[in-house]
């Protein structure tokens, strides 16, 4: 039953794609506010999930608590990255922060490999069970992941569009010079953006861990690449774009996997990136917003 399996792949992929959307939002939000790429973002997100795993095995507690711990640690890592890679580095030099975050990416990956001896570790599963719908079935853990990611997005969008803090963040991204002149401290907004995106990332890392059932150091590079792909497809700086692109990449990945197997799928996901770069370089929602 090709068509049934295909639909099944698409649905599973869409649900899991919500985690890619979160990672994409993280990349895109930092870009929107600072016009910088934080290459260490996905590595720190996985790091947050690992730290949560460590803590939860150490002190015990329900599996869902690991998600919240990962978010908290992720926020801390975000602040750390801001301080180490951005705060004291000349932002006018486009390469400086790129290099500092690539360095941080390598460092984070090294720490993860070192502390885990490079071995995958089991991650506590929060929701089990499968919803049987006749020919189709829906994995409970994927629905849970999707719902959690959706909740995180709603909270983020509320913060950005309905609070004054979000308004200030958007003001900085649209017009940083005028933002300073209405008394907004750029360094505060920047740091806060890193904390919020770090929390999203840690949360996403833990969601991925709980859906896959394990965490592996091998997650770092593919997650970085997929986060960047989502960001490009969605359009740099566009949050709705990152959400749609995340779901799209999750779906495409699963469809490619269905047709070509798990070892080949990422090749096609990469090809998808080039298709977008050639035919729609501005992403799905080509942003007309400019700043000077």
């Amino acid at each position: 039953m090709l068509i049934v399996d295909l639909v099944q792949s698409i649905v599973d992929g869409l649900l899991f794609g919500a985690t890619y959307a979160l990672i994409g939002i993280g990349f895109t939000l930092v870009f929107g506010v600072m016009h910088k790429i934080n290459m260490a973002y996905a590595a720190a997100s996985v790091g947050g999930a690992y730290a949560a795993l460590r803590l939860i095995t150490l002190i015990g507690g329900p599996a869902w608590a690991s998600l919240l711990i990962a978010a908290a640690v992720g926020g801390l890592f975000g602040l750390l990255i801001y301080w180490l890679c951005f705060r004291f580095i000349p932002l006018s030099n486009p390469l400086a922060t790129l290099m500092s975050t690539v360095g941080m990416f390598l460092l984070a990956e090294e720490i993860i490999v070192h502390t885990t001896d490079g071995m995958p570790q089991n991650y506590p599963v929060v929701v089990r069970g499968i919803l049987d719908l006749g020919e189709f079935m829906i994995r409970g853990d994927l629905v849970f992941v999707f719902a959690c990611a959706l909740l995180a997005m709603v909270i983020l969008l509320y913060l950005l569009y309905r609070t004054k803090l979000g308004m200030a963040t958007r003001a900085v991204s649209q017009q940083p010079i005028a933002a300073q002149l209405v008394g907004i401290r750029l360094s505060h907004v920047n740091a806060l953006t890193f904390v919020v995106t770090g929390m999203l990332g840690g949360f996403a890392g833990a969601l991925i861990g709980s859906a896959v059932g394990l965490l592996s150091p091998l997650l770092v590079v593919p997650l970085t690449i997929k986060g960047l792909i989502v960001t490009v497809i969605g359009g740099l700086g566009s949050i709705p774009g990152a959400i749609i692109a995340g779901l799209l990449v999750g779906m495409a990945e699963n469809v490619f996997q269905y047709f070509r197997g798990v070892t080949e799928r990422d090749i096609y996901v990469m090809l998808l990136l080039f298709v977008f770069l050639v035919f729609r370089p501005g992403g799905i929602f080509s942003s007309t917003v400019k700043r000077d």
Partner: peptide
């Protein structure tokens, strides 16, 4: 001199 409003607000 060149207007700097928050255009998307």
């Amino acid at each position: 001199q060149n207007i700097r409003l928050f255009g998307q607000l």
